[in-house]
Design a protein around this nucleic acid. Structure first.
Length: 630
RNA sequence: GCCGGCUUAGCUCAGUGGUAGAGCAGCGGUUUUGUAAACCGCUGGUCAUCGGUUCGAAUCCGAUAGCCGGCUCCA
């Protein structure tokens, strides 16, 4: 596969970096050093721990290699020659990589100066062509990306054809950091984390809650129009349900550990009396850590030997929804049945995976399950995809990627339920729906859910990480496990297909994404504060209050700046707070019944009648107008 | 979970073994103000936590927690 000139440059820079590292640390063992979308990396196995100071030293040594203007020379070798060469140099990873090259394919070395690398190429003519590079970070990375393998040290860097482009890229990185939802979320007081609450458990502050509730309203209206029914389910369920669903064996690690309690079958007289004993203990002096330990062992002692049962906090809503399906006998006339809920779920994500709002342990999903017949499937699946696209248009989301995840036949019965026919049928159905609708997508094997193929919509965070923002999944397996059925027109029983869909993902991730997408500059309908009245002096305070009341009468979120500051300061604060409209009220406006409007897009728009402004704002709100440039 | 780094006031950040600082925010007062910062004053920190070294620790060492950059994972 040919590299683009930029990839060639970056890959060559990776070789230069490896050359420099070998000069400084001759004992280093090399793995691989490919280009990436934004730069390059090289993986090293080395006893020394790279430090940020090392990066500067390595950069300096790289500068020397560039100065030596070493030509990159390609040579073909035999497998045996290559193996001997790397054995001689003590490079086990290279020998391992050699094994990846299929028989009959050319084995090539690229040499620059004293540095020789197993490499398919291609490269720039010589190291002197590398004009602008920078090493960015040090990271751990497993050999071949497998957790069971040794962790190597990876150095990330980037390179550009010239200094200017490198500087522009570094500047762009800085700019992206300003969009980071974690920074804006704190500045705008949208959400917060607290150590006592726990990692990955966000608190929605009042302003963030406004956004949450506006999104819920959007979803409810959209889903109502599309024929969904709303349901509500508990946050917990007995272990037995997750055994039925098949989730426990697959996902126990990702769920919070169960709550264990005395079984319902234990007579009351034998059940532990936590209450009295605890009460007595807890109030007998200070509550120390030692005492907590005593109380916990007391509880364990009391429960000892009793039959127990376990409850899990739900990590997904599907099993509960399946139970709602099952609560009532269903006929083909009832299908499709679309059950929607903004369900609260909890997942015990590994600590290192948590990332602001984008990856959390408590979340609310824009979830729904559509139960339908195979004949209805195409139309239903397509309707869900169209709902995605309508939403994306509403939010002005243009940069996304549809991923169609299919199964791997080699892993049937292990990672994927063993129903080869159903896999084929449903994947074909999805592929046909996608083709008919003309949506661009990429197909990725081996990424399906265990119960069926899926379409994920991928977006990128400000700092460039990729996330699934929405999902549309086929499930032909779990309804069967739950014994879901409907009576067909022929009066026989059949199992429905189920579509799991979450076009708005979770509140947490979706809002995290929206914060970055809009850089906090939300369209009016989502803005926590929509209108701020800015009286010039106290003399206009009464009029300002009256305008605030009028706005609120139209459900517009308005406030008055009651500070003793001068207008300039009020405007500045209004601007920094990213409020869509500011209404300046001075003596003239108060007398004329007008407001001087300031908008985020146009700045000072001059005076207009209050009613005219209210009509405009109310319409923007109602229509969910995308008022901001994104 | 793994590798590495970071943690000083609400926020942004100075402070390299010898009495904890600045700007902004907040609070109080004066000013009643016309489109991005009026003026004066005040409050606020167990330097993440615990332990160690030292006559003396924000500063050196260790552990723990949280966060950050990656890896792995992501129903």
């Amino acid at each position: 596969m040919a590299m683009t000139p930029l990839e060639e440059l970056r890959h060559s820079t990776a070789h230069v970096m490896a050359t420099a590292v070998m000069r400084l640390f001759p004992e280093a063992k090399l793995d691989i050093g490919p280009p990436t979308d934004t730069g390059f990396y090289y993986d090293f196995d080395i006893g020394h721990r790279f430090t940020p100071e090392d990066l500067a030293r390595i950069e300096e040594a790289m500068g020397k290699v560039v100065g030596e203007d070493q030509p990159f020379v390609r040579s073909e070798v035999t497998r045996e020659e290559a193996r001997k060469f790397f054995e001689g140099r003590g490079q086990p990873y290279k020998i391992s990589r050699l094994g990846d090259i299929p028989e009959g394919e050319a084995i090539t070395f690229y040499t620059n100066g004293e540095f020789v690398d197993l490499c398919a190429g291609t490269h720039v003519a010589s190291t002197g062509r590398i004009k602008a590079f920078k090493l960015l970070s040090i990271a751990g990375a497993y050999h071949r990306g497998d957790e069971r393998n040794k962790q190597l040290q990876r150095i990330y860097g980037t390179a550009f054809p010239n200094r200017e482009e490198l500087e522009a890229y570094l500047h762009q990185l800085e700019e992206a950091k300003k969009r980071d939802h974690r920074k804006i979320g704190r500045e705008m007081q949208l959400f917060a984390f607290d150590e006592d609450v726990g990692p990955g458990l966000p608190l929605w502050l009042p302003k963030g809650t406004v956004i949450v509730e506006e999104l819920e309203r959007l979803a409810k209206e959209t889903e109502f129009a599309a024929g969904y029914d709303r349901v509500r389910t508990p946050h917990l369920a007995r272990e037995s349900m997750y055994i039925t669903s098949g989730h426990l064996p697959y996902y126990a690690d990702s769920m919070f550990p169960p709550m264990t309690l005395a079984a319902e079958s234990v007579p009351d007289s034998q059940k532990p009396r936590y209450r009295e004993e605890f009460h007595r203990e807890i109030h007998a002096g200070e509550l120390t850590e030692a005492k907590m330990d005593r109380l916990i062992s007391l509880a364990q002692e009391m429960a000892k030997g009793l039959p127990v049962e376990r409850y899990y906090i739900k990590a997904m809503n599907c099993p509960h929804h399946h139970k709602i399906y099952k609560a009532i006998p269903r006929s083909y006339r009832d299908l499709p049945l679309r059950l929607a809920e903004y369900g609260a779920c909890y997942r015990y994500e590994q600590s290192g995976e948590l990332f602001g709002l984008m990856r959390v342990r408590s979340m609310q999903m824009n979830d729904a399950h559509i139960y339908c017949t195979p004949e209805q499937f195409g139309e239903e699946f397509n309707a869900v995809n169209e709902m995605y696209l309508r939403y994306f248009k509403l939010f002005g989301i243009a940069k996304y990627r549809m991923r169609f995840s299919t199964h791997d036949p080699a892993r049937l019965g292990e990672k994927f339920v063993g129903e080869p026919e159903l896999w084929k049928q449903t994947e074909d159905m999805v592929r046909r729906v996608l083709a008919d609708s003309g949506i661009d997508f990429i197909e990725v094997p081996n990424e399906a859910a265990f119960y069926g193929p899926k379409i994920d919509v991928q977006v990128w965070s400000a700092i460039g990480r990729e996330f699934t923002i929405a999902t549309n999944q086929v499930d032909f397996a779990v309804p069967k496990r739950f014994g879901l059925e409907y009576t067909t027109a022929e009066n026989t029983k059949a199992t429905p297909l189920c579509i799991h869909r979450a076009p708005l993902g979770t509140h947490e991730r979706f809002i995290g994404f929206l914060i970055e997408h809009f850089a906090g500059d939300f369209p009016l309908w989502l803005a926590p504060e929509q209108v701020r009245v800015l009286p010039i002096a106290d003399g206009q305070m009464e009029v300002a209050r009256a305008i605030e009341r009028k706005c609120r009468g139209l459900a517009l979120r308005a406030t008055v700046d009651t500070s003793p500051d001068k207008l300039g300061a009020k405007i500045r604060r209004w601007q920094l707070d990213k409020v869509p409209y500011g209404l300046v009220i001075g003596k003239q406006e108060a007398a004329a019944g007008t407001v001087s409007v300031r908008s985020r897009q146009k700045g000072d728009e001059g005076a207009m009648a209050l009613d005219a402004f209210l009509e405009r704002a109310a319409m923007e709100y109602r229509e969910r107008t995308l008022t901001v440039a994104v």
